[in-house]
Simulated scan of single mutants.
Amino acid sequence: MLRNLYAWTMALAARKAAAWWLAIIAFVESSFFLVPADVLFVPMVLARPRRAYFYATIATIASVLGGILGWTIGHYAFEAIARPVLVFYGKLETFEGLAQSVDWKTILILLVTSGLAHLPPIKVVTILSGVANFNLGLFILSAIIARGGRFFALAWLLNTYGEEMRHFIEKRLSLISAIVAGALIVIYGAYVLLH
């Protein structure tokens, strides 16, 4: 199923309406969709490097709006909507584990790590933020910084290094994401221990 979703998303990058598809995918990724917007964003930037920052803006805005939807689902409709979605993707156990041990600082670091590196998946964190009644204003600001940072950094890298960067990212994205997330978690752990 994941391979089919990936192939379908890649095919969208070649369409004239690709920017609209990017907005839709970035929006739904932040609340319930499995495939990250990067799989559409990367080929779009490579195909039209001059529009890299335009695409990054679209992806950031749509992702933040989708995150607000995820927060709203978690806050107002967890049992009716969020639980079945989390069960469908096999993320309910992860979610429940997180929900039992979070405070606002933990949610903030999860927003940053998921926004930058997809660890844990952004949809889990947006819903968790709503369930935990995380401040919506701080949620939006964190999402703008994390998601915008990710899309604009990718736009710059792809615009600067082109095909070489695409191959590097595709081969090492999981490793890069894990290293960034690990570093952020270590920094947060050190902060908690020192305060």
Rank of each mutant, 00 (worst) to 15 (best):
K123E: 01
F78W: 10
T72G: 11
I127D: 06
M165C: 10
N135V: 05
A77W: 14
L46V: 02
L34G: 01
L110M: 10
G149L: 07
A183T: 11
I24H: 12
L110H: 06
N135P: 06
A52R: 09
A37N: 07
S142T: 09
I185K: 05
L141G: 08
R48P: 00
A18I: 02
S129D: 07
G74Y: 06
I81N: 05
R50V: 01
G67Q: 08
L138Q: 13
L108G: 03
L119F: 14
F27C: 09
Q100T: 08
L194A: 12
L194C: 06
A23M: 09
A11D: 13
R3M: 10
M165N: 12
P43W: 08
R166V: 02
A26W: 05
S31K: 05
V87I: 14
A153Y: 14
I107N: 07
E170P: 03
F95R: 00
I24M: 13
V192G: 04
V125R: 06
I169K: 09
F168R: 15
W21F: 14
R166W: 10
I25V: 13
M10T: 11
L128Q: 07
V42I: 15
P49D: 10
E164Y: 13
I185Y: 14
W21D: 07
F33D: 02
W156D: 07
W21I: 00
A190D: 12
R51M: 12
E164G: 08
I109Y: 05
M44S: 00
W104I: 08
L193S: 10
V112E: 05
W20S: 09
G182R: 09
L98C: 04
S63D: 06
W20V: 12
E79C: 01
I109L: 09
L46N: 13
Y53K: 05
D38K: 04
V64C: 05
L154K: 06
I127E: 08
A181C: 09
Y6H: 15
G182H: 11
I68W: 04
F134L: 07
V131I: 06
V87Q: 12
L46W: 10
L157C: 15
L108N: 03
L184S: 08
A52I: 05
I144C: 09
S30V: 00
T106V: 13
L128A: 03
S63F: 04
W21H: 12
F32P: 00
